[in-house]
């Protein structure tokens, strides 16, 4: 319990330290853009590979529901709302955590174990600025891009099932796509992505930065990074959904 609180305190200090360095100069611009690019490139395929089939599944099950009251034409509205607001942010960011976050933890963990972080500090270079800030910023910037990629592939997945597998008319799918969805939903999804990206970046870098205990310690750091980041942002997601899309019942 005490240990948990101490860990939380250390994480808060770490987060504050990183945040402070993000808003003050200097920035490792080259390093940061390299990480952004790398993150997008690494996560692109996994995000498409996960969200696309989920869009297909949504359509498959959604058709089942809408068939009950003969409103199959509304399918694409359901798919687009779900994809923009929930599925794509949560799934794409799960992949960012699994691919990008675990890579951050692995890289920083290895640097810690091989004393590269100590070497950085001894060279009088701020290791947080040099190694951590670029990664956290990369997660913040890349996540919205990847969520957008995910949204498009989810809607495409729904389209494939509805039109090619279940034979719904193609025009109806596109016509109803924006029936219930507004730019607010798209923007909301991106806000979520930004927040989740921050959580992933901070948690993963924290785990890697404070890794101990040799190669096994790096494995542990990677494990913790993914699990904690995903758990935290799934919880945060509920509150964000309620805050952004205001779903308070009408009784």
């Amino acid at each position: 319990m005490i240990e948990g609180l101490a860990g939380l305190g250390r994480f808060a200090l770490f987060g504050a330290g990183v945040a402070w360095r993000i808003v003050t100069p200097w920035w490792e611009v080259g390093e940061t853009s390299r990480h952004v690019w790398q993150l997008v490139a690494r996560c692109f395929l996994p995000v498409v590979a996960v969200v696309f089939p989920f869009g297909m599944v949504m359509a498959l099950q959604g058709l089942g529901i809408f068939a009950v009251f003969g409103a199959q034409r509304m399918l694409s509205s359901l798919v687009s709302v779900a994809v923009f607001r929930e599925l794509s942010p949560v799934l794409a960011c799960t992949l960012v955590a699994a691919q990008g976050g675990s890579a951050f933890a692995a890289e920083l963990g290895a640097m810690r174990i091989q004393e590269e972080l100590d070497a950085t500090e001894i060279m009088a270079i701020d290791s947080l600025r040099a190694h951590v800030v670029p990664r956290v910023v990369a997660a913040l910037l890349a996540s919205p891009v990847l969520v957008l990629v995910g949204s498009i592939s989810g809607i495409a997945g729904g389209f494939v099932t509805a039109v090619y597998v279940k034979g719904e008319p193609e025009g109806v799918y596109w016509a109803n796509l924006w029936a219930l969805t507004s730019p607010v939903d798209v923007a909301g999804g991106l806000v979520k992505a930004f927040v989740f990206g921050g959580i992933i970046g901070l948690v993963a870098c924290y785990q890697g930065y404070f890794a101990t205990g040799g190669a096994a310690g790096v494995g542990r750091a990677v494990n913790n990074a993914v699990v904690i980041a995903v758990t935290v942002f799934v919880v945060v997601n509920y509150f964000l959904t309620t805050a952004l899309f205001g779903a308070i019942g009408v009784g």
């Binding site: 089939p53 989920f54 992949l95 675990s102 692995a106 091989q114």
Partner: peptide, 29 residues
């Protein structure tokens, strides 16, 4: 090396999660 362990762990979670999600559609059908 430690970097190898990190990469192996990374690849494990990504590949297995992606395979499961992709296979889910087939299984649901």
């Amino acid at each position: 090396g430690p970097a190898g362990v990190g990469q192996a762990t990374n690849a494990a979670v990504v590949v297995s999660a992606v395979s499961c999600a992709a296979l889910n559609y087939v299984l649901s059908e």
